[in-house]
Amino acid sequence: MTRFGLPNGLDAIARLRDEMDKVFANVLREVPSLGSAIPSILESQPRLNMWEDESTLFVEAEVPGLKLQELDVYAKDDELTIAGDRSAPEQAESDFRTRERAHTKFRRVVRLPVPINPELIEARLQQGILTLTMPKAECAKPKKIDVKLG
């Protein structure tokens, strides 16, 4: 790009900017993929799975990039809340050439199918997957009823 005639100094700055543009021009070009669209990790709410056995409810959540101390888990009877902050690190907006990952705070509230004992919840975080092990409240556990002959 020709920038003759600019005032002294501005010309050099303009050339420097041009050089930068050249370096990063066409740095990235998407190669068509057979994969589906970008998944819902993009969304601010983490995706969850939930299952149970007789005595325990299990929940796992996708929280890539977060440490345990950056997550808050609240439980009350039959309600579970998972909150966290995926705000971007100090990074100028202009430095992003592509920005698809979530960079927001989130708070997901889930109604549990049975009440749990909040005091006994265990949390484990492994490679971006938070797993919660939640013992069911005594009243929610199945009880064996002795059948007597009449």
Binding site: L34, P39, P64, G128
Partner: peptide
């Protein structure tokens, strides 16, 4: 099979690509 969400961050020194691949 899904497309991995990425961030691409450019500076004078390097290009940084981050991809969410939980699990």
């Amino acid at each position: 099979e899904v497309t991995a969400p990425i961030d691409v961050i450019a500076s004078e020194q390097e290009l940084v690509i981050r991809a969410d691949l939980p699990g």
